[in-house]
């Protein structure tokens, strides 16, 4: 699941407060276990529930790294600390892989949302060790098979249709990102590895809903990755895309550089020659 944000969202906090503190974590866990189970049953090709697969050494190494780097928020045992960080039981290795490889976790400072950070502080081995430890806390989605994260094997046309219905309304048709409520946002999906796009769909990080394999099959997800990749490969034939954010930057350009250029010419035209 997502790193629970220490959000300023009053509604949400009061709602949580009305119930027993453990209820939410418990329910989330139940839900995820259910999801994981169904997931494991229906799509065995990608998601062997990963808990038992790792050797005990790796899990132990992961536990040590976890206690050193993650426990402040997620608790010594990974079961979360109320209002600080959610329980990680059942979030699966895919979630750890996504959150840590994109630099979102560990979060540098508390905020509405964990931003993507280019400078990842952990090695691949360390991340997979932590992932193994977290996976051992409860069954959850595993890191996807390369077969399904390789965009070149997908059908971009079909992926585009799925993308426009399921993704574009938050992430923008060009994948340039968009705003959510109260300071949250859907990040850019351009320049993101296929594996991480897959893991995001699978685990539903932060505000993003989960797209499990019954909703979008692994093939569907691969098609989406193919579409995103091919769209980037196609470049911007017309020139500078102005951030791919549509009419607002275009209007801004017309009101500044565009008309500025023509007014400069008009000033030159009206000025007496030396």
């Amino acid at each position: 699941m997502t790193p629970l944000t220490t959000t300023d969202e009053g509604r949400r906090l009061t709602r949580i407060d009305r119930r027993h503190p453990a209820a939410l974590a418990l329910l989330l866990m139940l839900g995820l276990i259910l999801a994981g189970t169904v997931f494991a049953a229906v799509a065995p090709k990608t998601a062997e529930a990963s808990a038992p697969a790792q050797s005990a050494d790796v899990v132990e190494e992961g536990r040590e790294l976890f206690v050193a780097n993650c426990a402040t928020c997620h608790g010594e045992n990974g079961l979360g600390i109320k209002d600080v960080g959610p329980s990680l039981a059942g979030v699966g290795a895919a979630s750890v892989d996504f959150q840590m490889e994109t630099g979102r976790m560990p979060m540098a400072k508390p905020g509405v949302q964990a931003p993507r950070v280019e400078d990842v502080k952990f090695s691949d081995e360390q991340i997979s060790a932590i992932a193994a430890y977290v996976a051992s806390l409860g069954a959850g989605p595993a890191i996807p098979d390369e077969e399904y994260t390789d965009g070149s094997k997908g059908d971009a046309g079909k992926g585009g249709e799925i993308f426009r219905v399921n993704c574009a309304m938050c992430h923008n048709s060009a994948g340039a990102g968009g705003a959510l409520t109260r300071g949250k946002y859907a990040p850019e999906v351009t320049g993101v590895e296929g594996k991480h796009i897959y893991e995001a769909m699978l685990t539903g990080p932060q505000s993003m809903p989960v797209f499990n394999d019954q909703n979008l099959t692994p093939e569907d997800k691969r098609d989406v990755i193919a579409y995103i990749e091919q769209q980037q490969e196609a470049g911007n034939p017309g020139g500078n895309p102005l951030g791919s954010l549509g009419p607002v930057p275009e209007g801004l350009f017309a009101w500044t550089i565009g008309i500025g250029l023509l007014i400069t010419a008009a000033v030159w035209l009206g000025k007496k020659s030396a």
Partner: peptide
Amino acid sequence: IKASDVTIGSVFH
């Protein structure tokens, strides 16, 4: 869509 396919946190179009 099977009811059991719709897990908590999902959204289906």
